[in-house]
Nucleic acid binder design. Structure first.
Ligand SMILES: [Mn+2]
Ligand SMILES: [Mn+2]
Ligand SMILES: [Zn+2]
Ligand SMILES: [Zn+2]
Lengths: 143, 143
DNA sequence: AAATGAAAATCAACTTAGTTGCAAATATCA
DNA sequence: TGATATTTGCAACTAAGTTGATTTTCATTT
């Protein structure tokens, strides 16, 4: 999705060393049009080289803490990850409850929701996640 | 939250036997102003009687399938449950990333989101979940 | 009241996704 | 080169939930 980002430079800007594995994680996510599970990222990297899952989990975690990735709590019991670079502003997601895929939707409606939800609370809102669940285009055709 | 519902009657209407445990699960959720984890429901029941966790998980699962409860994928790796009766229409949720509590927000803005998100897809949207993340009122005071 | 049968609850074992602690391998710097 | 710090790997563990088989409960039928 984002071959627009120069990953080595992105990491350099944050003082993070661009190791082969860190770049591999970013490239897998950059090449995907949808948010991926840690498992899927792991397998994608493994199709090219050998990696330990712990390393991948640690990279995903570190990137999420630094704001390089967003971790989505979109599905029970499995996190999904996506790039959080400027080409990927926060946006709603769609998950098909038949095939499980997580699509990215257009960011547009987010701004308005912010205003509606932020107001009425003594809480401080830092982030808003919108998840649409249903049956995707492909799965509808089949059945 | 919903002492408004007559649980035995609710179950009867669906042809589900109102066993002691099923009612206990509904009463715990009915007495709570926030969505609860399976663990919390289990502990609440255990403070009164002895139960096996499998039974509680199966009850939660059955209720969710029948639409008596909603299962919320609001936090990584832990489901939250809430009553889905007419006094609890679907609504956005707020989770504090300090204390982890999941508050229920007002249902109002949901209708509008539907229209915005349903349209642009070949997908069929069945449900929309909105999750606001931040720091809750209580946790803000403390720090 | 005893026998039958179905639904509900329990138990032990298992699974999945992720985490922890520590050791080995690399990279960086003096 | 050696000393230090960072990254990666390995094995063991955890938390949340699931599975399959067994036992209990409870309403019917005899
Ligand atoms: Mn996305
Ligand atoms: Mn709620
Ligand atoms: Zn699908
Ligand atoms: Zn809080």
């Amino acid at each position: 999705m984002s071959d627009l980002c120069d990953f080595p430079q992105l990491l350099a800007g944050l003082g993070v060393k661009p190791t082969a594995l860190r770049l591999a994680v970013l490239e897998v996510l950059g090449a995907s049009s949808k948010a991926l599970r840690a498992q899927e990222i792991l397998e994608a990297i493994r199709s090219k080289r050998r990696v330990n899952k712990v390393t991948v989990y640690r990279i995903l975690d570190g990137f999420t803490r630094r704001g390089i990735l967003r971790r989505l709590a979109i599905e029970d019991r499995v996190s999904h990850y996506e790039l959080a670079c400027e080409h990927h502003p926060p946006h709603p997601h769609f998950q098909c409850h038949n095939c499980g895929q997580v699509q990215c939707l257009e960011p547009a409606p987010l701004e308005r929701m912010w205003r509606d939800l932020k107001g009425p609370l003594g809480n401080r809102a830092d982030r808003i996640d919108i998840r649409v669940e249903g049956v995707c285009h492909k799965c509808r055709e089949i059945s």
